[in-house]
Amino acid sequence: MRWFVLRRLLLLVPAALGVLTLVFFLVHLVPGDPVDLMLGESASVADREDLRHALGLDQSLPRQYGRFMSGLFHGDLGESFFYREPVSRVIIERYPATVELAVLALIVALLIALPVGILAAARPYTLWDNGAVFFSLLGVSLPNFWLGPLLILVFALKLSWLPVSGREGFASVILPALTLGTGMAGILSRMIRGSLLEVMGEEYITAARSRGLPESVVWLRHALKNALIPVISLLGLQFGALLSGAIITEAIFSWPGVGQLLLSAISSRDYPLVQGCILVIAFTYLGVGLLADLLYAWADPRIHYGKSSA
């Protein structure tokens, strides 16, 4: 296990460095001058040169890259053009809202996917199963930028049960979490179904049945517990879809998270903020992926990550 953790951490290093490099070049090779954006095109040449010097934009690209990397290691993501504040401070204010939305969407996804997946596996290759498979396909095919406005129309505008947008109280997170969680529910239900069907063919299930255990105990205590282990791994992978989906969902519901901040930074061409938001989202994804892998290795006692296998 120790070797597995070490190997997994080591593998993270080139990916993280690659992400940083790609994002740096993506933002620094953008056509247009950030100084124009900050001062406007009517500013004097001297003012422009001063600001260019202050931002380090008069230096060569490799030197700027070096400054960028050393700044990052000191927690410095630069200063937002629009907010005139350190990017890290602006993002930290919004980050909890994104995490809250993602976690609640995950809970919604599990609440939908568990019964659907179990039902499909309990009646394999029947109409119930086909219905569940269709539901999973429908879930991944529903655009969240369509589902969101539809939910607003029904539950906020017509029925007035829930607020249209914003982040005030638990009621305000229900519609965004439903919007974001539905797509993931589709994928998870299918995974749970497949995993359960596989586990039900295992010998220990036959042994449990032969001991006369009730079917509900066999399913819930023996099958489901083991079937959910591979789902942990999938959760890590799908968290990326959740994070990128959160960008759109936050925009629809005016949810004050990092996704909405990214979109407003894009429209105001606030490149340090765009860069910071992308990095934070990408690193959250990398971190959750790592956590899911570690949890998976910890939860499955059959996996032995010895030195040789690492």
């Binding site: 690659g18 790609l22 990128s244 992308i278």
Partner: peptide
């Protein structure tokens, strides 16, 4: 390693950027 970098971006984030 290049693939790892691309996979480190969640969903369509890279396309948005």
């Amino acid at each position: 390693r290049v693939v790892d970098v691309f996979l480190a971006f969640p969903g369509i984030l890279l396309a948005i950027a």
